[in-house]
Design a protein around this nucleic acid. Structure first.
Lengths: 222, 222
DNA sequence: TAAACTGTATACTGACCAGTATATAGCGTA
DNA sequence: TACGCTATATACTGGTCAGTATACAGTTTA
């Protein structure tokens, strides 16, 4: 957006967009730095226990500098949220057009999902409260959340249709899956013994095979 | 505690403990009313977005009255948390001494767990942040949470030992179960189409049977 | 009836904090 | 060099809110 504005500005220099683009790039880098620092601080101390002054001091600047890059505190939270959520959306993008079974595609999404939730932005994604956001932001966030939920449900439905997933209630199953994964943000820390990949693999085992012993062999997905 | 203090106080009336006990009872009732109102308000608007003045006005009293029954805001949150958590502990108490299989006991706990999480106190239980609590309270809460987690793990281990549960990682499986259930607090509302019992039953189906179709018949637990 | 205790209110304090008004230094452009 | 734009700072404002000092009314106890 800043980049586009810079390009639209008339310029007579022989390399018109070079310096502007560079500045815009700098701006973006700094803005991202604020968002990352915020995500870390929010995860560690909570949204309400982190003041904008705190963020500024973490970044060795003062408050007005933060406000130079982002409208208000809510927008910071929103951007943290969105960054995390985009990773999960990416998981769905990756399997788009895949010819694999519904179950195989679902497990692929689960792996990426677990990674996103374990990231620095996981906490914001999971704990960003409706109540802390204006109605407008709240609607935007809920729309994004809904998209993820629908994506999970659709995969489950497709799995049922192609026979790779047992007949079940797609809605509740999607809730159970999302809940288990979102909860990772509560207990996983970078120094943990299990990597996000390992967690994902074991979750997949639990969900795919179920708790009851099977008479047959192992699942074909592993 | 107030009751005990009242009983210890020397009294010469012919029915010495009657009025005191009555007062203590009144006090308890009012204290509980504060906690319930707080749980509802916190769930609806969040802890930080609910002021003690708000609680007071919901209860048609003023702030000092609230402080007459509870030390500070943190204690209110803690009591909300504990009330919810006690319900889950009750689930474990109920199966104590049961002769059923590990899997059967686990599903029994899940049913009660789902109910507790769907209660008015579910939100507080799940969303009470470490960061909003003093180190002392935080430790107390984490000890209680750990107790639940250990309880789940033990049931899973016992199920594996008695053959009712497939061999799996008890720790991660307990996390997956707890996560799925705790997440109920995020999406379930009293007016939902599914009752907590129905949710629990479908969760059990998902976790027990797994996503992959089984060659054999249905699970014996249903 | 007097003293002590209990429950509740009014009115205040001190801290915190989101957001802003304004100044300024440096850089790009003419 | 002069102008304007960008990035950053200092210093302030207005509002919120947890928690408290104090008063008082009703009830129990002596």
């Amino acid at each position: 957006m800043a980049t586009r504005a810079a390009r639209l500005k008339p310029s007579t220099a022989d390399s018109p967009w070079r310096p502007s683009a560079d500045r815009a790039r700098q701006r973006e880098i700094k803005r991202d730095a604020v968002i990352l620092a915020a995500a870390r601080a929010f995860r560690q101390r909570g949204y309400h226990n982190t003041s904008v002054d705190d963020l500024a001091s973490i970044l060795n600047v003062t408050k007005p500098t933060i406000y130079h890059y982002l409208e208000n505190k809510e927008e910071i939270l929103f951007e943290c949220f969105r960054t995390g959520l985009d990773q999960i959306r990416g998981a769905f993008d990756e399997i788009r057009g895949s010819q694999e079974s519904g179950l195989a595609r679902l497990t692929a999404v689960i792996r990426r999902y677990a990674q996103a939730i374990s990231s620095e932005f996981g906490w914001c994604m999971v704990r960003a409260e409706d109540q802390d956001l204006s109605p407008v932001m709240s609607r935007r966030i809920n729309a994004l959340k809904k998209e993820i939920d629908q994506g999970l449900r659709r995969l489950i439905e497709e799995g049922i249709a192609d026979g790779s997933i047992r007949r079940c209630d797609p809605k509740i199953t999607a809730f159970a899956l999302a809940g288990a994964m979102n909860w990772i943000a509560h207990w996983h820390r970078a120094d943990a013994e299990l990597t996000p990949e390992q967690i994902a693999d074991r979750f997949i085992e639990v969900f795919v095979d179920g708790l009851m012993p099977r008479s047959g062999g192992k699942t074909p997905t592993r």
